[in-house]
Design a protein around this nucleic acid. Structure first.
Length: 598
RNA sequence: UGGGCGAUGGUGUAACGGUAGCACGACAGAUUUUGGUUCUGUUUGUCCAGGUUCGAAUCCUGGUCGCCCAGCCA
């Protein structure tokens, strides 16, 4: 069977809805393959995908693309009684690198993203190690068929004999009798040989221009404790040998992987075909179609597990879940939502073109979702005191604010107002710049949802810095509207000084200053952004104290839009009386852009 | 100088021999009690050279550029 896509074979199903002018996203090439398969009856309209991570690290945004793709396909083609299923499968074939901690984190992240392997489209949870017995039987089968042999060459010798383009590889053990290979494989399995002493190799083609076919290793000896099977095994299957069998045993129809496996597809197919030689009808094992797509490469970050691990080990970040990390756990801690990540993955599309995705698109996706979802609050990150000279001494006014102008169902909140407030330092200029619409001497602005105030004077310290702004307010503007219809050009946010809750706010910037870290110097560490974390002591509107609840999530009120600033999410480091917020992302800021021009 | 894959505005993505469209960005304007949101408009593209064809992003030939492959990693 060939796995080469033939997208033109069948008219895309979108023609069915030709009468509907509603714009639908065009099918990506994988959807086209699936629809062609459904039309031809190749899989009897079955669609079964899987996400097959190796538990050797935490999942990152690139994995999210694969998860959304695979689960999305199962969901999309699983309606109307058809069987669209999605498996989560751990490809745990290398105990030297794999750990239970990673299994646990991966399960949490996949579920959080909404790819529910136990839900309506769930095919279940699996481990490659569940199939070790079956794989061993298949290996014996291949030896008997003359399609595999035990090789005594060391790793170094194999490398030396690998050959070159045009020069074949060699192995002196290629024609070892099947009975002998069978016996030696059993000895390997029994633990009679040390690591590296022998391998089981597929007998394919030592002269193939595709080096993957030059008698690849199927089993190697690894005396190592496995997180799942303990010490039951000391030989472990290689990816190429294992993966197709895993797919086959689970009934996977479309085995989706990334581009670097294109060269492995002939091998994937060879192994399944080799097992099926001599089998008929129901004896034949399932043969999925491997399909490769381009992995996600966002700008301003690194993605390889090796590099992410190094940042963790070198304490450049606080851990795998540092909110600056492109990991799922980092994004979650930063305040990203599954909805936003899914929308992003949908937005970037699926192709075989290796392109860079501007990380701003991810930031856009979270803004878009949080604009609808986030309740509003006010917070002042860099406080400047504002005193209202004509405010009645000791008076506190309690005002009703809408919780979210984008979501009427969110209701209202109560916010205390008094004669001493904090405003944002950036919202005052003693000598206003061009197009600066905020507070300045003699200028009247609106305090959001409260009153108009006009600046009368400033108080400075010995260094000449403004440390206090003095204003008068207009009592007739309560709520933020002037009965006489006069307009102000600016609206600024504030918190009442005596009611404000202090909080630590962590402001994150990108981890790297270059779009492609390491491109210039070959060393990605050279492009680290030394200012990717700024911690400020902020004052926050009192009702956000709900964010003190340990284990906050968006659902439980852990996230807010701090008006005019951005989206913020209660960090797990928060303690009663010591709030910590992470800035998920800023709001778009056209004033900052304008100011930067000048 | 072996094999595999790819190339469409600034970025991403459509087109399946028949008007190069969409999204994001950028720019301009309108609305706005967040310089947010929303709305409107503008802008920019088929890697190159030949060929086939009434007609080519699409098919053919040859180039160019980029990525992947010689782990007992996945």
């Amino acid at each position: 069977m060939t796995a080469s896509p033939n997208p033109g074979a069948v008219p895309p199903s979108r023609s069915e809805s030709a009468s509907e002018p509603a714009p639908v996203r065009p099918l990506n090439f994988i959807e086209q393959i699936i629809e062609a398969d459904n039309a031809s009856g190749k899989w009897n309209k079955r669609v079964h995908t899987r996400f097959p991570p190796e538990p050797n690290g935490y999942l990152h945004i690139g994995h999210a693309k694969s998860i959304c793709l695979n689960f999305g396909l199962a969901k999309k083609y699983g309606s109307n009684g058809r069987a669209g299923k999605f498996n989560l499968r751990f490809d745990d074939t290398n105990p030297a690198k794999e750990e239970q901690e990673y299994v646990d984190s991966i399960k949490r992240d996949v579920k959080w993203l909404g790819a529910d392997w136990e839900g309506p489209n769930g095919g279940g949870l699996f481990f490659a190690s569940d199939y070790f017995d079956k794989m061993y039987e298949f290996a014996q089968d291949l030896i008997r068929k003359g399609k595999a042999y035990v090789c005594d060459l060391s790793a170094e010798e194999v490398a030396a004999r690998r050959g070159k383009p045009g020069v074949p590889a060699t192995s002196p053990w290629r024609d070892r009798p099947a009975e002998e290979s069978l016996r030696l494989l059993e000895e390997m399995k029994q633990g009679k040989w040390p690591n590296g002493a022998k391998t089981l190799r597929a007998r394919i083609d030592l002269a193939s221009p595709n080096f993957n076919l030059r008698d690849p290793v199927m089993y190697r000896i690894v005396h190592e404790h496995h997180h799942n099977t303990g010490d039951a095994w000391c030989i472990y299957p290689m990816y190429d040998w294992a993966h197709g069998i895993e797919d086959s045993l689970e009934g996977i129809t479309h085995s989706i992987c990334t581009l670097e496996f294109e060269d492995h597809r002939p091998l994937y197919d060879w192994f399944i075909d080799a097992i099926n030689v001599g089998r008929t009808g129901d004896e034949k094992i399932n043969h999925a179609q491997q399909i490769e797509f381009a992995k996600l490469r966002p700008t301003y970050t690194v993605m390889s597990k090796r590099n992410l691990l190094k940042m963790v080990q070198d304490k450049i970040v606080s851990g795998w879940d540092d909110p600056r990390m492109p990991t799922i756990s980092g994004l979650r801690r930063r305040g990203y939502t599954p909805e936003a990540i899914r929308a992003f993955c949908e937005d970037i599309g699926i192709t075989k073109v290796e392109s860079f995705i501007d990380i701003a698109r991810l930031e856009n996706a979270v803004r878009e979702h949080l604009n609808k979802a986030a309740p509003r609050a006010m917070a002042v990150l860099r406080p400047l005191k504002l005193v209202i000279e004509n405010w009645p001494a000791g008076k506190v006014d309690e005002l009703d604010f809408v919780a979210n102008p984008e979501d009427p169902a969110a209701g209202t909140r109560k916010v205390p107002f008094s004669g001493e407030l904090y405003i944002e330092r950036d919202d005052f200029m003693e000598v206003p710049a061009k197009k600066f619409f905020r507070l300045a001497p003699g200028i009247e602005v609106r305090l959001r949802w409260a009153y108009f105030v006009k600046c009368t004077s400033v108080v400075k310290n010995a260094a000449g810095e403004v440390i206090e702004v003095r204003c008068t307010y207009d009592p007739a503007t309560r709520g933020g509207d002037s009965p006489d219809g006069r307009k102000v050009k600016g609206t600024i946010h504030w918190v009442s000084a005596q009611h404000a809750v202090p909080a630590q706010v962590r402001l994150f910037d990108r981890l790297f200053t270059a779009e492609q870290p390491g491109k210039r110097t070959e060393n990605w560490m050279d492009d680290l952004n030394p200012n990717s974390l700024e911690v400020v002591k902020a004052f926050i509107e009192p009702h956000v104290a709900a964010a003190l609840i340990p284990g906050n999530t968006w659902e439980r009120g852990g996230g807010f839009q701090f008006e005019r600033l951005g989206y913020f999410y209660a960090d797990q480091d928060s303690r009663p009386g010591a709030l910590v917020f992470n800035r998920t992302v800023t709001l778009k800021d056209t004033w900052a852009k304008e100011a930067a021009k000048a």
